[in-house]
Amino acid sequence: MSVLLKNVSYIYGKGSSEEKLALRDINLEIRQNEFAAVVGHTGSGKSTLIQLLNGLEKAESGEIFFHGKNIYDKDFSMKMLRSKVGLVFQYPEHQLFESTVVKDVAFGPSNMGWEQLKVELSTFGALKDVGIGEELFDVSPLALSGGQKRRVAIAGVLAMEPEILVLDEPMAGLDPASRKEIFELLKKLHRERKITVLLVSHSMEDVAEYASRVIVMNQGQIVLDGEPRKVFRYEKELSKIGLGVPQATSLMHFLAEQGVAVEDDCLTVQESISAILKWLK
């Protein structure tokens, strides 16, 4: 167990005329070394949820435990939590500010109060992980391309050596090649570094391909939670709350409905092809 949320509720805009219950009674466990995806319509509470995980927002009621310790305890170190639960915001490249790539990536680790050598090691390590070559180390981050900027920004969080990496739509606004790069990066981090990845995404195809768990949110509540294969069986329920399933899955559901005896829990195009070929035989 790494993060546990117990009966967590959150009220948005408390005290103003537009009070809104953004999260109601959330119970959730993020297990070690998971690759989980959070999906939901805009305003379903996804962003609030991930900001609760590293203490940027405080729950109205309920408790959050990190490795069994209540993060709202007085002697709990938020700084430690923020380095252990690395949060990459949407369009993280908008937060780059230093004069060089290296300095920007080192911002997080230096804030942790680490000694110089450790800061440098983790900075260079993170830049290597995201595939930024040495020739770009002393370039201004603003002079990089969109995909490079995004990777530098992710390196800025990775350099704090988090155990859990939380990303809010890390692929938004990137071209297909950069999207693939980012996904391969996340896969590698997850596999080789045993980092737990929690990802907010709108692309069901990506979720189906990479995540081992899907958490579906609607109106501040978790409505479905499980393996992609199981969750995407509920195509009708998902479409009711404005979400879809991968197109390949949708096609197989349609075929099954038409009375074609195919296996209908396919997630990717490849799986669908083999299922259809199997049926044709």
Binding site: S83, P92, H94, Q95, V157
Partner: peptide, 16 residues
Amino acid sequence: EETDRIMKAQMARGAD
């Protein structure tokens, strides 16, 4: 709104 977002992003990187 943008300031709020950037502030949070930097706080997530340990800014004080």
